[in-house]
C-alpha cells in the first residue's frame, strides 16, 4: 500500500492517466538501459510501445511491472504509486503483463493455466483448505465456469484438458492472453504479442484486443515491431530510443517525426556494421 505522499509524487502527472511513468531510470552495471523514460496512458486506450532493438522497451516493462526494481523515478497506476513494488502486488492492482517468450505453464493443463489466474481465490490460503472447504469449492466452480467461457471466446475449449506444453506457439499466445484476462486486468501489458505467430492468428489477437477494449474497457500497452500493426491498431504510439521516450502521439504524428526516423535509421546502420 502506498502513502498519499507517494501518490502525489509525480508533479506533472497527466490528469486521469491510468498509468503514469515519470522519469524512470534503470541501469545494469555500466549500461543505462532505461534513461528517464516518461509517458502516460489514458484509460481505455490501446498504446503501442515501439523503438529500435536495445531501446529499453522490455526493461521498462519489467520496471513498471516490478520485475526489476527501478533506480529512480515514479510510476503511478490508477492513482497509486507502484514504483519498486513487488510484481504480485502490481498484478493484484490490475496491471497484468505477458512475456516476450510465452510463459505457458507447460506441465499444467490449459484449464489449470486459466483458473490459476483468477483473483480472490479463498482456496489459495492454506488454512482455508481446512477450515472453509465449502467456500473454496464454490469459488472454484465459479472460476472454472469463467475459465471455460473465456476459452470458448478464444476457441480453446477443445484443448481445456490438454497440457499447455502440447499447444502450438500461436495457441500458447492466445492462452497467455486469455489467462491474463482471467486476472481481471485494468491494464494489459503485452510484450510482442504478434511475434512468432501466423498472420491469421495475429489478426484474431488484434480483434480480441479491440473487442475487449470496447466491451470491458481494458486498456492495452503493447510492444510491437510490425509497423503496419502499430499504425492500424493503436490509438497512440510511444517511441523509445536509448532508454528514453523520444516521441509520443497518434500513429500518423509519430510516423513523420524526424527523431523517430533517425532512431530507426541509426539502428539499420548499426545492424549493417555488426
Amino acid at each position: 500500500m502506498s502513502s498519499p505522499a507517494a501518490k502525489s509524487a509525480p508533479a506533472q502527472a497527466r490528469n486521469g492517466a491510468l498509468l503514469d511513468v515519470d522519469g524512470v531510470f534503470k541501469h545494469f552495471g555500466g549500461i543505462q538501459a532505461v534513461n528517464g523514460a516518461t509517458f502516460g496512458i489514458a484509460p481505455g486506450s490501446i498504446t503501442a510501445l515501439i523503438g529500435p532493438n536495445g531501446a529499453g522497451k522490455t526493461t521498462l516493462f519489467n520496471v513498471v511491472t516490478g520485475f526489476y526494481k527501478g533506480d529512480r523515478g515514479a510510476v503511478t497506476f490508477d492513482g497509486n504509486s507502484i514504483f519498486r513494488h513487488a510484481p504480485y502486488e502490481i498484478a493484484q492492482r490490475g496491471m497484468v503483463r505477458t512475456f516476450q517468450i510465452t510463459k505457458s505453464l507447460a506441465a499444467m493443463p490449459v484449464i489449470d493455466n486459466m483458473m490459476l489466474a483468477a483473483p480472490d481465490q479463498p482456496g489459495e490460503r492454506f488454512m482455508n483448505l481446512i477450515v472453509r472447504p465449502g467456500a473454496v469449492r464454490s469459488r472454484e466452480s465459479e472460476v472454472r465456469e469463467q475459465s471455460m467461457e473465456l476459452l470458448e471466446v478464444f476457441n480453446l475449449t477443445q484443448l481445456a484438458n490438454a497440457y499447455a506444453g502440447t499447444l502450438s506457439g500461436g495457441q500458447r499466445k492466445l492462452l497467455e492472453l486469455a489467462r491474463a484476462l482471467m486476472a481481471r486486468p485494468k491494464l494489459l501489458l503485452l510484450d510482442e504479442p504478434m511475434a512468432g505467430i501466423n498472420p491469421t492468428l495475429g489478426k484474431r489477437l488484434l480483434e480480441h484486443m479491440q473487442r475487449l477494449r470496447k466491451e470491458q474497457g481494458v486498456t492495452f500497452l503493447f510492444i510491437e515491431h510490425d509497423m503496419e500493426v502499430v499504425m492500424n491498431h493503436s490509438d497512440r504510439v510511444v517511441v523509445m530510443a536509448e532508454g528514453a521516450v523520444i516521441a509520443e502521439g497518434e500513429p500518423h504524428e509519430v510516423r513523420g517525426d524526424q527523431r523517430v526516423i533517425d532512431a530507426y535509421l541509426g539502428e539499420t546502420q548499426e545492424d549493417s556494421t555488426t
Binding site: T65, F67, A86, P87, Y88, E89, A91, Q92, V96, R97, T98, F99, K103, S104, L105, A106, A107, M108, D112, M115, L116, A117, P119, Q121, P122, G123, E124, R125, F126, L129, V136, R139, E140, V143, R179, A180, A183
Partner: peptide, 23 residues
C-alpha cells in the same frame, strides 16, 4: 486445490505466477 495449483505454477515458472498476482 487452488493452493496446490499455485505451487505447480511456481514449479513451472515462478515469474508467470508472480505476473498473475501470486505471492
Amino acid at each position: 486445490t487452488p493452493w496446490g495449483r499455485v505451487l505447480r505454477a511456481v514449479r513451472e515458472d515462478e515469474d508467470a505466477a508472480m505476473a498473475l498476482g501470486k505471492r
